[in-house]
Simulated assay, not measured.
Amino acid sequence: MSFDTDASGINHIIILGKTNSGKTTAGKIIEQVSDFTHIEASDVFQNILQDQNKKYSVDNIMNYLETTDGTGVAQEIVKEIRITGCSAVITGLRKPEGVRFMLSELPKIVVVTIVAPRSVRKSRIDENRSNSIDNSNLKFERKESIDECLGINQAIKEYSNIELQNTGDIGTFESKITELLSEL
């Protein structure tokens, strides 16, 4: 199936970034202002686990990634894109193998990394967890550690084409995303 509606256009965007950098926010903004469909990898993974009657846990994540060579979620996303024929903005991929798989299977992809200072990322998790009894600092550190183990830094280094700064100001972030889309 070909998505070539414009010889110079981008059909898919993969957004990478560290914990709470603004990946999902960027995906939602892109979906709102363009024809791209936002696909969040963690939602796809939760559906996979639900279909297998398993809970969303670190152990189940790691076991699934081992049994699928790190590409299982990416394979499911590619299937969805092929079935629907949509142009997608994909957020939440962590493993280099998953990014590599998508780049090999789908046409015209750009990989964008959202970069946010640690203080901004930490404040975002504090805001998201304001009503939670969890220790947000511990949760942030754990998520950072898991991301590093999964290879997010390697994926960014190997595959990112564009870097987009998130300083924590949503208006500025939206403007940067809109400008990026106009340049693609």
Results as ranks from 00 to 15, higher is better:
residue 2 S to Y: 02
residue 2 S to T: 01
residue 4 D to H: 00
residue 6 D to I: 08
residue 14 I to M: 05
residue 16 L to R: 06
residue 17 G to V: 10
residue 20 N to F: 14
residue 20 N to P: 02
residue 21 S to K: 03
residue 22 G to D: 11
residue 24 T to Q: 07
residue 25 T to H: 05
residue 25 T to M: 10
residue 26 A to S: 10
residue 29 I to V: 14
residue 31 E to K: 08
residue 31 E to M: 00
residue 31 E to W: 01
residue 32 Q to I: 00
residue 33 V to K: 01
residue 35 D to E: 14
residue 35 D to G: 08
residue 36 F to T: 01
residue 36 F to G: 01
residue 37 T to L: 13
residue 37 T to I: 13
residue 39 I to G: 02
residue 39 I to N: 03
residue 43 D to G: 02
residue 43 D to P: 00
residue 45 F to D: 06
residue 46 Q to S: 15
residue 47 N to L: 08
residue 49 L to K: 07
residue 50 Q to S: 15
residue 51 D to H: 12
residue 51 D to V: 04
residue 52 Q to F: 02
residue 53 N to D: 15
residue 54 K to A: 12
residue 57 S to D: 08
residue 59 D to I: 06
residue 60 N to V: 04
residue 61 I to G: 01
residue 63 N to G: 02
residue 65 L to H: 06
residue 66 E to N: 13
residue 67 T to I: 04
residue 69 D to R: 06
residue 70 G to F: 07
residue 70 G to V: 10
residue 70 G to D: 02
residue 71 T to I: 10
residue 71 T to R: 04
residue 71 T to H: 00
residue 73 V to A: 07
residue 75 Q to E: 12
residue 77 I to N: 05
residue 77 I to K: 13
residue 78 V to G: 00
residue 80 E to A: 07
residue 80 E to P: 00
residue 82 R to Q: 11
residue 86 C to I: 09
residue 88 A to T: 04
residue 88 A to F: 02
residue 88 A to H: 01
residue 89 V to A: 02
residue 90 I to A: 11
residue 92 G to N: 03
residue 92 G to D: 08
residue 93 L to D: 04
residue 95 K to E: 13
residue 95 K to A: 12
residue 95 K to R: 14
residue 96 P to M: 03
residue 97 E to R: 09
residue 99 V to S: 07
residue 99 V to D: 08
residue 100 R to M: 09
residue 100 R to W: 02
residue 100 R to T: 09
residue 101 F to D: 08
residue 102 M to H: 05
residue 102 M to N: 08
residue 104 S to E: 15
residue 105 E to S: 07
residue 106 L to N: 09
residue 107 P to F: 05
residue 107 P to N: 11
residue 107 P to D: 14
residue 108 K to M: 11
residue 108 K to R: 15
residue 110 V to M: 09
residue 110 V to S: 10
residue 110 V to E: 13
residue 114 I to Y: 02
residue 114 I to F: 06
residue 116 A to K: 03
residue 116 A to P: 07
residue 118 R to V: 14
residue 121 R to H: 11
residue 122 K to T: 13
residue 123 S to H: 02
residue 123 S to N: 11
residue 124 R to S: 10
residue 127 E to C: 04
residue 127 E to Y: 06
residue 127 E to N: 13
residue 128 N to P: 01
residue 128 N to R: 15
residue 129 R to E: 10
residue 129 R to K: 10
residue 130 S to V: 04
residue 130 S to C: 03
residue 132 S to D: 12
residue 135 N to G: 05
residue 136 S to L: 01
residue 136 S to Y: 06
residue 137 N to D: 15
residue 138 L to A: 13
residue 138 L to D: 10
residue 139 K to V: 14
residue 139 K to N: 07
residue 140 F to G: 11
residue 140 F to H: 14
residue 140 F to S: 12
residue 141 E to G: 11
residue 143 K to I: 12
residue 145 S to L: 11
residue 148 E to W: 01
residue 149 C to G: 12
residue 149 C to S: 14
residue 149 C to N: 14
residue 149 C to W: 07
residue 150 L to C: 05
residue 150 L to Y: 08
residue 152 I to T: 13
residue 153 N to V: 04
residue 154 Q to I: 15
residue 159 Y to C: 12
residue 161 N to S: 14
residue 162 I to Y: 10
residue 163 E to Y: 15
residue 165 Q to R: 09
residue 167 T to I: 08
residue 167 T to C: 08
residue 169 D to E: 13
residue 170 I to P: 03
residue 172 T to E: 13
residue 173 F to T: 06
residue 173 F to D: 06
residue 175 S to N: 12
residue 176 K to H: 04
residue 177 I to E: 00
residue 177 I to Q: 00
residue 178 T to P: 00
residue 183 E to I: 01
